[in-house]
């Protein structure tokens, strides 16, 4: 039921988005407006059809729930009630193995979304070369409970990968807000330059 309701919410949002897409184009010159309207109006019609389908789905599920409730109330309570089954449309049931508790799986899902945001912030603040290995170390050692050995190997591989990208393939990567604010570019540029000087003489 939760999934059907969410589907309904998404369908409403899509209709609103398409109304905005069409409305926003109203004051544009003809040639700018032509394509957004040529596409936008049929897509708006499609989203309205989808909204209708989503409403029918929710209403159908509600009717089925009411009918099931009425049947259960009228049936004699001769035998013990069966254990509650997972909802038919619970995606977690399909996405994770049966041995994993769905509630725990959902908590892990939310946690990893949080980590996605933490990695994003770390890259923004410290750049790729420092942000991802440091956050990776915290994730591996303190959140995932990996051994120091495994954590350090993964983190060093990540650092080496970014070195290869920047020094070897000249892929420009951002320094991050903090090193930039401090005026030091990449945090490790000093030691790296010294190392490059020692090894390559340039």
């Amino acid at each position: 039921m939760l999934r059907r309701r969410l589907d309904l919410v998404l369908s409403v949002l899509l209709v609103l988005m398409m109304v905005w897409v069409v409305w926003e184009a109203r004051d544009w010159p003809f040639r700018t407006r032509l394509f957004p309207w040529m596409l936008g109006i049929p897509v708006l019609a499609l989203t309205l059809l989808q909204l209708g389908a989503a409403i029918r789905n929710v209403a159908g599920a509600r009717r089925a729930e009411l009918a099931a409730g009425a049947a259960a109330a009228s049936a004699p309570a001769r035998r013990a009630a069966p254990p509650p089954a997972a909802p038919i449309d619970d995606p977690d049931a399909a996405a994770v193995p049966a041995t994993v508790d769905p509630r725990a799986a959902r908590a892990r899902g939310l946690a990893i979304v949080g980590w996605l945001l933490v990695f994003f912030a770390a890259i923004w603040l410290l750049g790729f070369r420092w942000g991802t290995p440091l956050t990776g170390l915290v994730f591996l050692r303190y959140y995932a409970g990996e051994s120091w050995r495994a954590s350090v190997i993964v983190v060093l591989s990540m650092y080496a990968f970014f070195l290869l990208l920047e020094a070897g393939l000249s892929v420009p990567l951002p320094a991050g807000v903090i090193p930039q604010a401090l005026g030091i570019g990449q945090l490790d540029v000093g030691p790296l330059s010294a190392l490059r000087q020692a090894l390559l003489g340039r």
Binding site: I112, W115, L116, F119, T132, T135, G136, F139, L140, A144, G145, E146, A150, V154, V155, S157, M158
Partner: peptide, 8 residues
């Protein structure tokens, strides 16, 4: 756990 940081 070992793959997640790399994939992200």
């Amino acid at each position: 756990a070992l793959l997640i940081p790399i994939l992200i």
